[in-house]
């Protein structure tokens, strides 16, 4: 694993995490896309050195052949993340149509329950001793 490609993986991942922690939907999606790229790149990096095309019967035993499996895995992962992220974009668009806003909303019911809990606490502390 070369140092440089490992560094790229790390940088992409950390930028992705930073964007994921934002509250704006478009940044979250960009962050996820970067993290997906970084994971795919990691798959390529762990595959070892580049080499000849690994075609059955096209090379002798002494040739250094690239490991085909990580490439296949990365290709699959790329297609999957491409599909899911485009679906996420479609949903984000829908969310924008519905709310005219790009922020991730809070769970209404959850907030309500939290309020109930707080009110309960206040009553408990202010009870006559």
């Amino acid at each position: 694993m070369s140092f440089f490609s490992a560094l790229i993986v790390a940088v992409l991942f950390s930028v992705g995490v930073y964007l994921l922690l934002q509250r704006t939907l478009s940044r979250i999606i960009l962050g996820l896309a970067l993290m997906a790229h970084s994971a795919n790149l990691l798959l390529m990096v762990v595959g070892g050195r580049a080499g000849k095309a690994p075609i059955l019967g096209a090379f002798g035993p002494e040739d250094s052949v690239a490991d085909p499996l990580p490439q296949a895995l990365a290709l699959t992962a790329i297609v999957i993340s491409f599909g899911v992220i485009s679906f996420l974009l479609a949903i984000a668009y829908r969310s924008w149509v519905l709310t005219q806003d790009d922020e991730v909303e809070d769970d209404v019911e959850d907030a309500r329950i939290a309020q109930l809990g707080e009110a309960e606490m206040r009553r408990w502390w202010s009870r006559p001793k």
Binding site: L32, M35, A36, A39, S81, L88
Partner: peptide
């Protein structure tokens, strides 16, 4: 979707 996509990336 976001949580599951994150899990899939991991």
């Amino acid at each position: 979707i976001i949580i599951n996509l994150l899990a899939s990336t991991l």
